[in-house]
Amino acid sequence: MNTVLITGATGFLGGAVAVNLLKKSDHYRLLLLVRANSQAAGLERIKENLLKFGVEAGQLNRLTHENILIGDLAEPERFIDDARLTKVTHVLNCAAVASFGANPLIWKVNVEGTFAFASRMARVKGLKRFVHVGTAMSCAPEANSLVVESELNTLREQHVVEYTWSKATVERMMSEMLPNLPLVIARPSIVVGHSDCGCAPSPSIFWVFRMVLTLGKFMCELNDRIDVVPVDYCADALELLLTAPNVEKTIIHISAGENSSVTFAEIDQAMAQASGHVAVAETYQKVNYRELAASRSSFSSLFGPCNERILLRAMNLYGHFSKLNVVFSNEKLLELGMPPSSKFTDYLHHCVASTRNATIAELMEVDFK
């Protein structure tokens, strides 16, 4: 039986993959890296997260203390000597500080800790696959393009945030410095919601679309496209990459691609239909950041109590990404037998329903922690 070590199982994407593999416990033995003071506390954290994905109690009860590896990528030296690591056959590394804020742990976890962990796993004789989850944005894509999987050669000045630079850096370090690591780099595009559970597992990034349409103006055109996939599709793709043949030393997008990406105009229509509000298409304005900042006095009335400084920072960052108008090629993934992703607009109504009673300020906390 394969033993799969998952890091980040208390998070959004790692939790979704853990749910998948938990349902197939006859084929996989799970070892889950968790930040906690004890295995009992770690098990509770895992169960609390997986419940957000609608997992049945009977499936959750398959997890025991033996499935829990206490540790933190900020301090890898505390767990990398655990004897259970020698029996791991597959690694799915989802753990990261995925903040677009100025979190001081970004480099320590995403680069230093991740590389130390990967170095340790490269010495495990029975390791068959190490799937590292990066981000499609780590390639610093050019605007208005169909982006194919690129080499690891970006520069710091090409990155808007430290998060994407940290991801690009550790990808290059592992590829160049760990030749024995059976590495596959998975680069998801923009992961928003769950195709059945909406934003119940996490509201990450969905609030941006609500914010834009509430404002009725932003830094992109309504006919610009955006590449969004649901977390369950991403989890299915990562499960495939754990065992797919002939993918080692490969970079693979997990993306909507040309056929399943959508325009902001389509999102506007779907959001209006799901929420019962009027679409903003006829009154929408494309503006620059300075014009957005000039409207800060209206933020409280539009969004409720909020930190204007953080909201403006969010508008600046996500405004930059929104106007890129890029789509990430999914040809490599489809060639492996993965079906196309559903469109964001196909399941957006679930996202609306699951966030109806939350303010934008509350929803955005997950991305600016």
Rank of each mutant, 00 (worst) to 15 (best):
Leu292His: 13
Asp236Ser: 10
Leu51Cys: 12
Pro203Cys: 09
Cys139Ile: 13
Arg290Tyr: 05
Arg123Thr: 15
Val192Leu: 08
Ser38Leu: 12
Leu240Tyr: 05
Thr214Glu: 13
Leu43Ile: 08
Met219Glu: 14
Ser300Trp: 10
Pro182Trp: 01
Lys343Pro: 04
Arg123Gly: 05
Asn20Thr: 03
Leu242Val: 11
Arg187Ala: 09
Gly15Asn: 08
Val131Phe: 00
Val124His: 06
Gln285Gly: 03
Ala237Trp: 01
Met338Asn: 04
Leu33Phe: 03
Glu44Leu: 14
Met174Pro: 01
Leu22Cys: 06
Ser138Trp: 01
Glu248Thr: 06
Arg225Gln: 14
Val160His: 13
Gln269Ala: 09
Arg356Leu: 05
Ser119Pro: 01
Ala18Lys: 03
Val109Lys: 07
Ser329Ile: 01
Arg313Cys: 02
Leu324Asn: 02
Ser342Arg: 11
Asp72Cys: 04
Gly193Arg: 09
Leu324Met: 14
Ile252Gly: 04
His159Gln: 03
Val97Phe: 00
Gly276Ala: 11
His65Val: 11
Asp224Ala: 14
Val148Asn: 10
Asn37Asp: 14
His320Ser: 14
Thr243Pro: 00
Ala136Met: 07
Val160Glu: 15
Tyr28Thr: 05
Gly126Thr: 11
Thr10Gln: 11
Gly42Phe: 01
Glu66Ala: 15
Lys249Pro: 05
Arg309Phe: 10
Glu248Lys: 12
Val247Arg: 06
Leu363Ser: 01
Asp268Gln: 05
Glu176Met: 07
Ser260Gly: 00
Ser255Asp: 07
Val262Cys: 08
His27Lys: 15
Ile267Arg: 03
Arg78Glu: 12
Asn316Ile: 00
Glu112Asn: 09
Val191Thr: 10
Gly198Thr: 11
Tyr163Lys: 06
Asn103Met: 02
Glu112Arg: 08
Thr3Tyr: 01
Met121Asp: 09
Leu152Ser: 09
Glu331Thr: 11
Glu291Leu: 03
Ile68His: 08
Ser260His: 07
Glu56Pro: 01
His349Phe: 08
Glu171Arg: 11
Thr345Phe: 00
Glu308Pro: 05
Val366Lys: 13
Phe115Ser: 02
Lys108Trp: 00
Thr214Pro: 02
Glu112Gly: 04
Glu75Ala: 12
Thr154Trp: 03
Arg129Asp: 05
Phe130Lys: 08
Pro305Asp: 15
Val161Asp: 06
Leu292Asn: 10
Asn20Ala: 11
Glu335Ala: 15
Leu92Tyr: 02
Glu335Met: 11
Ile106Ala: 02
Ala274Pro: 08
Arg225Leu: 09
Lys47Asp: 07
Asn246Gln: 15
Asn49Tyr: 02
Lys24Met: 10
Ala200Val: 13
Ala256Ile: 01
Ala122Glu: 14
His349Ile: 04
Tyr289Ile: 06
Glu56Gly: 13
Asp367Glu: 14
Glu75Cys: 13
Leu33Ile: 08
Ala116Tyr: 01
Cys306Pro: 06
Val247Thr: 14
Leu334Arg: 15
Ser119Gly: 02
Ser322Gln: 12
Gly71Tyr: 03
Asn61Cys: 05
Tyr347Glu: 04
Met1Ser: 13
Leu222Trp: 07
Thr250Asp: 13
Leu13Trp: 00
Phe53Tyr: 15
Ile360Asp: 05
Thr214Ser: 11
Ala140Gln: 10
Ala358His: 14
Phe115Ala: 00
Leu242Pro: 03
Ser119Ile: 00
Leu292Glu: 13
Leu69Asp: 07
Trp165Val: 09
Leu292Asp: 15
Ala122Thr: 13
His320Gly: 04
Lys369Val: 07
